[in-house]
Amino acid sequence: MTVLQIVALALVAVGAPAVVAARDPLRQAFVASFYGLLLGVLFFAFAAPDVALSSIVIGSVALPTIILLALAKIGDKDS
């Protein structure tokens, strides 16, 4: 295995507990966005560029947006 793959795997292995440990959902949305980017790097290191593209677009853009919107609705409830 190449060094890039080992480094990517290590980063993802650290990133997953970071996502779980961020208990406040607002912070967690941003950590999850960064985790999507790390996953994209890992998939790229595994010779899967289109899966990496998919992961970066979804995990870094679409998913945090949805989370933030859901949070905005929840926080806004007592109007």
């Binding site: 993802v12 997953a16 959902p25 996953l39 010779a47 899966v51 998913l63 989370i67 859901a70 929840i74």
Partner: peptide, 30 residues
Amino acid sequence: LVHLVICLSVVQSSTYLLLLGIGYRTNGAA
């Protein structure tokens, strides 16, 4: 609940890693 849903998506990401790990060939190209 929102924290729970995001952790669920982390669990899903582990399956992606497993799938890609199965299909990889050493020094293989895309």
